[in-house]
């Protein structure tokens, strides 16, 4: 290891020199930490590698992902790969209009006083806005903003009321789908399949040899 271009950081409470340009996860590996619990996709999507850091001369502790945060000189950083969050127990398939049960299932949501401490999302989600929309029963707005949620739980770690916004939002997202209109095009296709509309043609095509199938494919064209 060439330490000529190295910088000094404080990693998991230990001041140490590491080569510049590494991510937090890579610096942990480089310095002998056998990190497995906080590693997943290495692409910033699985939410396993959350970190808390303080940059040099900064007054504000920040939050991010260990596979995405590139280290800088003077950085103080620890991993926070897990934060205890309550997950409610419910069976969506046995509920008629699940959204009406939100207040029982996640009653803590209604203690939210919009302090916005949860706005630390590494995916730039305005978590406070999602929670406010949820409280105001504007469920479409709430779900529209959580498609990018990676369930890392950093927002939950900041909430003084002990709300786990990622689980509340996921319940709303799931419940909303159950209450939506069943897609007409899927309904149509399912009934066609039930009446075996494609069965014969599919059996015929599946029985074709390679050459025959290849020329059949050419005749299909674009739909």
């Amino acid at each position: 290891m060439n330490l000529a271009n190295s910088i000094t950081i404080e990693l998991e409470g230990r001041k140490i020199k590491v080569p510049e340009g590494l991510t937090v996860i890579e610096s942990l590996w480089d310095t002998g930490h056998d990190v497995k619990r906080g590693v997943g996709c290495l692409s910033g999507l699985c939410g396993a590698c959350t970190v808390v850091y303080l940059e040099k001369d900064s007054k504000k502790v920040r939050f991010g992902l260990g596979c995405q945060k590139v280290i800088e000189d003077g950085l103080i950083v620890i991993m926070l790969p897990y934060f205890p969050s309550r997950v409610a127990h419910y069976l969506l398939t046995s509920m008629d209009s699940p959204l009406q049960h939100l207040a029982e299932i996640y009653s803590e949501l209604y203690t939210c006083n919009d302090c916005k401490a949860c706005n630390v999302c590494p995916e730039w989600i305005d978590v406070a806005r999602v929670m406010k929309a949820a409280k105001d029963e504007d469920y479409e707005t709430a779900t529209n903003h959580i498609t990018d949620c990676i369930m890392c739980g950093l927002c939950a770690s900041r909430c003084p009321k002990g709300i786990a916004p990622q689980h509340v939002a996921l319940f709303i997202q799931r419940a909303l789908v159950v209450e939506r209109l069943f897609p007409p095009n899927l309904h149509q296709r399912l009934s066609e399949m039930e009446s075996l509309k494609f069965e014969q043609e599919l059996a015929r095509v599946a029985a074709m040899g390679t050459d025959e199938l290849e020329s059949y494919c050419h005749t299909l064209g674009e739909a």
Binding site: Q173, R180, P183, L186
Partner: peptide, 17 residues
Amino acid sequence: LDIGVDFDRDAIGNLLT
């Protein structure tokens, strides 16, 4: 859909393809 996966839809509620 039954277990709550929210696929993108078009204006009339069809699955967007």
